[in-house]
């Protein structure tokens, strides 16, 4: 029971990170119908940006780790957003209206580029930061196994929740969110009604990247280590989360992220940690084959 509770806590923490990345996939898919294959690598890049900025602030300027992390979080959001803005402009914008697979292939190229760009500039090895904020609260004690909740985990879940609230507000209540939902339903009609579609799509990429950057910073905080090949597997898992939740649906992405995080930790605990990636990949395949609209998504109707 204690182990179950502990894994529940770990799973929710991991699920928050996956959920944040999954929103980037689901929003882009919703608005331009493209699987943004490079999103996982944008996430990895943001973790590297966060790592470098954190080292710069703590070593170069002697800022304490706590305040430094807050600054890093926002700076990494801004810089990753700029990256994704440029990526959209360079790699995807011209491809709207091209044949169906063109954006996906372009995104695979972008993903290859980003992973190797970071490898070339930062080296292929693991980069680990000294642990900080690693105090824990014991929830149960005296039993066979002490269930603990670390400050990190509280921070991760709290930041995720706060961001989701802010993000929900943006999508539901602001003119930008309205334009975004309009483009999602019918980009041509939205353009006729005076919505700047290009700008809205660019902003979607920017928001997706900012959320991925938060996930990247939290990932760095949680694991304390990042390497340049870290974009692929978390990326695929977050995409699985988006698919499981119903691609195009924002609450679905968060729900899917939580589900994937929980399944992964529980699978690792109770079955075999060797095959925990197989669990995520099989969920991806099974969902796409048998339930392509996911848990909360709209069914995809093919119109002729």
């Amino acid at each position: 029971m204690e182990i179950f509770l502990q894994q529940l806590i770990n799973g929710v923490t991991l699920g928050s990170i996956y959920g944040l990345i999954a929103i980037g996939y689901t929003m882009v898919f919703g608005i331009i119908g493209m699987v943004n294959f490079a999103h996982g690598d944008v996430f990895m890049l943001s973790a590297f940006i966060a790592l470098l900025l954190l080292l710069l602030l703590t070593q170069g300027f002697g800022v304490a780790e706590g305040p430094a992390f807050v600054v890093v979080l926002f700076a990494s959001m801004a810089l990753t957003a700029l990256w994704n803005f440029v990526i959209e402009r360079v790699a995807y914008r011209r491809l709207r209206g091209s044949f169906r697979l063109a954006p996906l292939i372009s995104a695979i190229g972008m993903s290859t580029f980003l992973a190797n760009f970071v490898t070339v500039t930062q080296g292929p090895n693991n980069k680990s930061i000294p642990p900080f904020l690693d105090k824990v609260i014991a929830i149960t004690s005296g039993g066979a196994y002490d269930v603990t909740l670390s400050y990190k985990q509280i921070l991760i879940v709290a930041v995720t929740a706060a961001l989701l609230a802010a993000f929900w507000y943006v999508v539901q209540k602001t003119p930008l969110g309205r334009a975004q939902r309009a483009c999602e339903q019918d980009a041509k009609m939205a353009a006729l009604l005076g919505v700047d579609v290009d700008r809205t799509i660019a902003l979607t990429f920017v928001i997706g990247a900012a959320l991925a950057a938060v996930a990247g910073s939290l990932f760095l905080l949680h694991y304390g280590v990042v390497k340049s090949s870290d974009g692929f597997v978390p990326g695929v898992k977050a995409f699985t989360a988006a698919v499981l939740g119903g691609i195009g649906s924002l609450p679905g992405a968060v729900l899917g992220g939580m589900a994937i995080g929980l399944i992964e930790t529980m699978w690792g605990q109770y079955f075999s940690s060797d095959y925990k990636d197989v669990a995520a990949f099989s969920i991806l395949a099974v969902t796409l084959i048998f339930m392509p609209s996911g848990l909360l998504g709209r069914p995809d109707v093919e119109k002729v």
Binding site: R94, A102, P103, G109, T112, L114, A115, N116, F117, V120
Partner: peptide, 17 residues
């Protein structure tokens, strides 16, 4: 090899564009 894949990535994007 890293530079090769870096260039291959760029080339794929350019080809699609």
């Amino acid at each position: 090899t890293q530079y090769r894949m870096l260039l291959v990535g760029i080339a794929m994007v350019a080809m699609m564009n």
